[in-house]
C-alpha cells in the first residue's frame, strides 16, 4: 500500500524515472518516512499505555523482594516497560538501593531500560524487519542480565557515593490512574516524543536515501564487512557520542548495511548508541565513584563488542 503511494508520488506525479538515482532515492525517502512515522505514532502510544501500569515505584517494590539471578532477569524485563529517562537516573538509583534492591540487580535495570527502548525497536523493525528487532531485544536483555550479575559479583557497594546509603527516601504515594488518565498520558507522551525526534528521523532517512541512491554497491564491504576485525570496536566507539539518536541513526545504518556493513557490526553499533552515553556517565557520577562507573561502562562495552563478533560469525 505504502509502496504504491511512494511509487505514485515519485514516478507518476513528479514524473521521475524509476531507474534514475534521484527517482530511486526519493521513492525510498517517501516510503520510509511514511512507514516509520505510522509505526512510531502507533507503537509509542501503545507502549505508553502499557507503561502506565509500571511506574518506577512499583518496579522498585517488585525488585526489592528479589534475590540475585532471578532479580537480574526480572530487572532486565521490567527495564523494557518502566518509563526511564537518563535525567531521572539518580533518584531512581537511590530509590532502588534504599529499598534494598541489590546493586547488581539495579544495574541490570539501568542497562536494559535505555537499551531496549521502544524507539530503537520500532526503527529496527521498520528498517530491518522483526527478526533483527527480536534479536536486538533478546541480546539486549542477556547483556543486561549478565552485566548486572557480573557487577553484583564484584561486590562494589563501597564504590557507591557514601551519601546514597544515608539518604532517607520518603514514602512515595502511587495513585492508580484511571483509563482516561492513561490515554491522556499516552497521548501527551507520544506527541512529546514525536516532536523531539522527528527532525532526526527525517534527516536520518534523508541521508539513508542518499546513500541508497548514490553510494556504489558493496562500497563498505571492505571496511565494515565481517572480515574486518576492527569494524566492531570502531562501530562501538562511534556509537557512544550519538547517544539517544537511535531514531536518526538507524535509517543511515540500514542504508550502510545494503552497501556491505555486516549485521553484527550494525547490532553492536546500535547498542552502543542506546546503552553507552557520556551525558548518562556524567549524571551517574553523582551516585557512583569512579571505579564503579568505569567498571559499568567497561563491562557493557565488552559485552556489546562480543555480541558484534558473535553475530558477524553466525548471521
Amino acid at each position: 500500500m505504502l509502496k504504491i503511494l511512494a511509487d505514485y508520488l515519485t514516478y507518476d506525479l513528479l514524473g521521475l524515472n524509476p531507474a534514475s538515482r534521484l527517482g530511486g532515492a526519493l521513492d525510498f525517502f517517501i516510503y520510509d518516512t511514511v512507514k516509520i512515522f505510522l509505526l512510531l505514532a502507533g507503537i509509542i502510544f501503545l507502549v505508553a499505555v502499557i507503561r502506565s501500569w509500571f511506574p518506577p515505584e512499583k518496579t522498585k517494590q517488585i525488585l526489592s523482594h528479589k534475590t540475585r539471578y532471578l532479580g537480574n532477569v526480572v530487572a532486565a524485563l521490567l527495564g523494557i516497560v518502566t518509563p526511564f529517562c537518563s535525567c531521572s537516573a539518580v533518584p531512581l538509583f537511590i530509590g532502588f538501593l534504599e529499598s534494598g534492591v541489590p546493586l547488581g540487580v539495579t544495574f541490570s535495570f539501568l542497562i536494559s531500560s535505555p537499551m531496549v527502548n521502544e524507539v530503537a525497536l520500532i526503527m529496527l523493525w521498520g528498517m530491518f524487519g522483526w527478526r533483527i528487532a527480536l534479536i536486538y531485544i533478546g541480546t539486549g536483555l542477556i547483556i543486561a542480565v549478565v552485566a548486572g550479575i557480573a557487577i553484583g559479583r564484584l561486590k562494589m557497594e563501597r564504590y557507591v557515593q557514601d551519601y546514597v546509603w544515608e539518604m532517607r527516601v520518603g514514602k512515595g504515594e502511587v495513585t492508580t490512574p484511571t483509563w482516561p488518565e492513561r490515554l491522556l498520558y499516552a497521548k501527551e507522551y507520544t506527541l512529546g516524543l514525536l516532536k523531539k525526534i522527528w527532525p532526526y528521523v527525517l534527516v536520518g532517512i534523508g541521508i539513508g536515501a542518499f546513500i541508497h541512491g548514490y553510494v556504489p554497491q558493496d562500497f563498505l564491504a571492505k571496511w565494515a564487512g565481517r572480515d574486518n576485525p576492527f569494524a566492531v570496536p570502531l562501530a562501538v566507539a562511534l556509537g557512544v557520542p550519538l547517544y539517544s539518536n537511535a531514531a536518526g541513526v538507524i535509517p543511515i545504518v540500514q542504508a550502510l548495511t545494503a552497501k556491505g556493513m555486516a549485521m553484527g557490526t550494525v547490532l553492536a553499533f546500535m547498542m552502543a548508541v542506546t546503552a553507552l552515553s557520556l551525558p548518562e556517565a556524567v549524571i551517574l557520577s553523582n551516585v557512583l565513584k569512579k571505579p564503579l562507573l568505569v567498571t559499568f561502562f567497561g563491562v557493557v562495552t565488552v559485552a556489546i563488542t562480543m555480541v558484534g563478533y558473535l553475530f558477524n560469525a553466525i548471521l
Partner: peptide
C-alpha cells in the same frame, strides 16, 4: 537538590508537589 527530591519518595522527574503532597511524577502537565 537530590535529598529534597528523595524526601518526597519521587523516583522519576519532573514531579509536582502541592502543599507537601506529590500530585504526580514522571511527566509534564499543561
Amino acid at each position: 537538590d537530590i535529598p529534597s527530591i528523595m524526601k518526597y519518595g519521587v523516583m522519576s522527574t519532573p514531579a509536582l508537589v502541592i502543599d507537601g503532597t506529590v500530585k504526580f511524577s514522571g511527566r509534564v502537565a499543561s
